[in-house]
C-alpha cells in the first residue's frame, strides 16, 4: 500500500489528529507520555463517550443524527437509581428498566424518523427537551429530589461498575472494547454494514435494492438511545448515585468524536476504527490537557481548532479518494 491509499481510508484523518494532538501536547505542553498512557482518566472518559459514539456513528453513516442521547445518559442513570436506590427493588429490575427506557425512546425516535419527512435533528431535539423535563419532573415527583443515592450488589458492580487492573480503570472500558469489536463486525464484515453504507449514500436506491431501510433506521435509533442509557446505568452503579442533568455537553462531545473519527455528517462514509480513534483523540484533548502545562482555560479552543482541522482533512482525503476512484474507472 502506498501512502495515498492509506490516507484515503476513513480512519486516516483521525490517526493524524491523534498524532497531531499528542505532538502539540508534547511540544507545547511538555506532557509526560509515560504518565499519560498509564493514567485512567482519559481511557475512562473515552469509554463513556465511546459506547455512545459507536451507534451514533452507525446512525450518522446511515445519514441520520440523534441528539436525544444527551438526555438519555442521565435518564438511564436516574432510572437505575430510582428503581434500585429509592424503591430498593432488586438490581436486575433497575438494569432492565434503564435499558427499556432506552429502547422505548429509541423506538419513538425511529418511528417518527421513518414515518415523517422531518430531519432527525429536529425530531430528536424534541425528544431531548421532553426527556429532560420528564426525567427531572419524574424524579422530583417520585423521590422528591434531583439526586438519588443507591447501593449496588456485588455482582452488578463487578459487571457494570467496578475498577479493574487494580487501579482506576473502569470496567466500562471492557464493554467499550467488546462493543467496538461487535460494531466493527457489523459494519465491515456483515451485510448490515453494506446496507447502512448504502442507506447513507442514497436512501431511495437502497430501498429499491430491497434493503429494509425503515427497519434498520428504527434499529439504529434504538441502538443509540439504549447505548446512552446503558452508559448512564453503568455510571450510576459505579458511583453509587445519579443526578439529573441536561446533558447538553455530551451531545456535542459525542458528535465531535464521531466526526473527528472520519464519519461524514451527510452519511455514507466512515469506519469503526476511525470512530474508535476519534473518541480516543477527543478524550486525550479533554483529559490530557491536565497532564500538560497548558492552562485548562484553552481546552475548548483546542477542541474547536482540532475539530475544524480534522474535518478539513477528512474532506480533502475523501475528495482524493473520489478522484482516485474516478481515475481508476477511466483507466
Amino acid at each position: 500500500m502506498d501512502i495515498m491509499t492509506i490516507l484515503r481510508r476513513p480512519a486516516a484523518a483521525s490517526v493524524i489528529s491523534l498524532i497531531g494532538v499528542l505532538l502539540f501536547y508534547i511540544v507545547f505542553g511538555g506532557v509526560d507520555l509515560g504518565k499519560l498512557s498509564g493514567a485512567a482518566s482519559w481511557v475512562n472518559y473515552a469509554a463513556r463517550i465511546g459506547i455512545v459514539a459507536l451507534p451514533v456513528a452507525l446512525l450518522m453513516i446511515s445519514g441520520e443524527i440523534d441528539i436525544s442521547i444527551g438526555a438519555m445518559i442521565p435518564a438511564g442513570a436516574m432510572t437505575t437509581a430510582i428503581i434500585a436506590g429509592h424503591y430498593e427493588l432488586p438490581m436486575i429490575f433497575a438494569i432492565l428498566g434503564a435499558l427499556t427506557i432506552g429502547v422505548v425512546v429509541g423506538l419513538f425516535n425511529g418511528i417518527l424518523a421513518v414515518r415523517t419527512s422531518v430531519p432527525t435533528l429536529i425530531i430528536t431535539l424534541g425528544t431531548l427537551v421532553a426527556m429532560q423535563g420528564i426525567v427531572l419532573a419524574g424524579s422530583k415527583l417520585l423521590t422528591g429530589g434531583a439526586s438519588v443515592p443507591l447501593t449496588a450488589p456485588g455482582w452488578a458492580k463487578t459487571i457494570f461498575g467496578d475498577f479493574i487492573w487494580g487501579g482506576s480503570h473502569q470496567v466500562v472500558i471492557i464493554w467499550w472494547l467488546i462493543l467496538a469489536v461487535v460494531f466493527w463486525f457489523i459494519m465491515h464484515q456483515s451485510k448490515y454494514g453494506n446496507w447502512i453504507f448504502a442507506m447513507g449514500g442514497d436512501k431511495v436506491s437502497a430501498r429499491n435494492a430491497g434493503i429494509p431501510v425503515d427497519r434498520i433506521t428504527i434499529l439504529l435509533f434504538v441502538g443509540t438511545a439504549t447505548a446512552a442509557s446503558f452508559v448512564g446505568m453503568c455510571h450510576a452503579i459505579l458511583f453509587n448515585s445519579a443526578q439529573v442533568s441536561g446533558g447538553m455537553n455530551d451531545i456535542f462531545n459525542i458528535i465531535v468524536s464521531v466526526v473527528v473519527g472520519g464519519v461524514l455528517l451527510t452519511g455514507g462514509f466512515g469506519s469503526i476504527v476511525g470512530v474508535f480513534i476519534g473518541t480516543l483523540t477527543f478524550a486525550i484533548v479533554i483529559k490530557g490537557i491536565d497532564f500538560t502545562s497548558i492552562d485548562r482555560n484553552w481546552a475548548n479552543l483546542i477542541i474547536g481548532v482540532m475539530l475544524l482541522l480534522a474535518v478539513g482533512m477528512n474532506e480533502t482525503f475523501r475528495k482524493k479518494a473520489m478522484t482516485a476512484a474516478t481515475k481508476k474507472k477511466k483507466g
Binding site: S41, S241, S245, G247
Partner: peptide, 21 residues
C-alpha cells in the same frame, strides 16, 4: 468541563490526580 455529571466527573478527576503522581 461542565456540571452535567458533577459527582462522577469530580471522582474521575480525583483518581486522575492519583494517577498523575
Amino acid at each position: 468541563q461542565n456540571y452535567d455529571n458533577l459527582g462522577p466527573d469530580a471522582a474521575e478527576l480525583i483518581r486522575q490526580a492519583i494517577d498523575q503522581g
